[in-house]
Design a protein around this nucleic acid. Structure first.
Length: 255
DNA sequence: ATGGTCGATGGTCGA
């Protein structure tokens, strides 16, 4: 069973690339972020032609998360339980007995911005919701754009990012709280190296300067993590015509 | 070569 996460930064612009990538990557489940589409505007037919069912939580021009699955998709829930969120940032469903959530964690903007407080509150609500899900589903996977680099080795230069979001202590503590539920950062189960990234800013040629961050993550519960076989970041998808600023991340799990 | 890039939008804002 192959599961991936990808912040596509507008599915309207990225549709052909996403479909082409699904065709070659042979993913069973894809967690999508930043569809930037209204709920009913998702191009469901294009995905069904490839054999994927869709569950979309759309908002309009911002945010928007979705699940695409070719191994079944049931018990879908939108948003985070007990958290009154105006933004479409989380959707969960069951794909062949694995509970899969696609999340788009708030950016935070800057440490003194109200959006940063929203980010911290959002992460605490996510922790509570995942605790709830873990009681019912031993096999849980959360894929998404976390907008957090878990450790200093996950950014191109910690010195250049002093005082910025994505690396601050408080948000990293919130991320650790997710792991403390019994979740594992699956990429780090296989790779300990630094300078391995999933996102590169469009500005200033960051990709070619190798200035990025690892903020797109796949978290697996213990029972799922134990069956993880391999993982990769498909950084080729950051190249070519009209790429997203994020690369997809894939994990293969023993069925 | 006096300049940051995209995508939503149709003013700028968000990332």
């Amino acid at each position: 069973m192959r599961i991936a996460t990808w912040n596509v930064n507008s599915l309207r612009v990225r549709l052909d690339r996403v479909l082409a990538w699904l065709d070659v990557s042979e993913c069973d489940v894809l967690c999508i972020q930043e569809t930037k589409l209204a709920q009913d505007a998702f191009p469901t037919d294009a995905f069904s032609e490839l054999g994927y069912e869709i569950a979309h939580y759309g908002q309009g021009q911002w945010n928007g998360v979705a699940l695409a699955s070719r191994i079944g998709l049931s018990d879908v829930r939108r948003g985070i339980t007990g958290f009154d969120d105006k933004e479409a940032r989380a959707i969960i469903g069951t794909c062949s007995n694995v509970r899969v959530m696609s999340v788009y964690v708030p950016n935070g903007r800057s440490l003194d911005d109200p959006h940063y407080q929203y980010k911290l509150r959002w992460l605490k609500a996510l922790r509570d919701d995942l605790g709830f899900e873990l009681k019912r589903h031993a096999d849980l996977l959360v894929g998404g754009d976390f907008n957090i680099a878990p450790r200093d080795i996950d950014v191109w230069s910690i010195d250049a990012l002093q005082g910025a979001t994505h690396v601050s202590t408080r948000e990293r503590e919130c991320f650790e709280d997710l792991l403390n539920l019994g979740m594992e950062d699956l990429f780090r189960k296989f790779f300990s190296q630094e300078q391995l990234f999933t996102w590169w800013d469009y500005r200033g040629g960051s990709f070619h300067k190798r200035q990025g961050m690892r903020i797109d993550l796949l978290l697996g519960s213990a029972s799922l993590s134990n069956r993880a076989l391999w993982t990769l970041i498909d950084r080729n998808e950051r190249k070519g015509t009209q790429p997203s600023d994020h690369a997809p991340v894939v994990v293969e799990v023993q069925a």
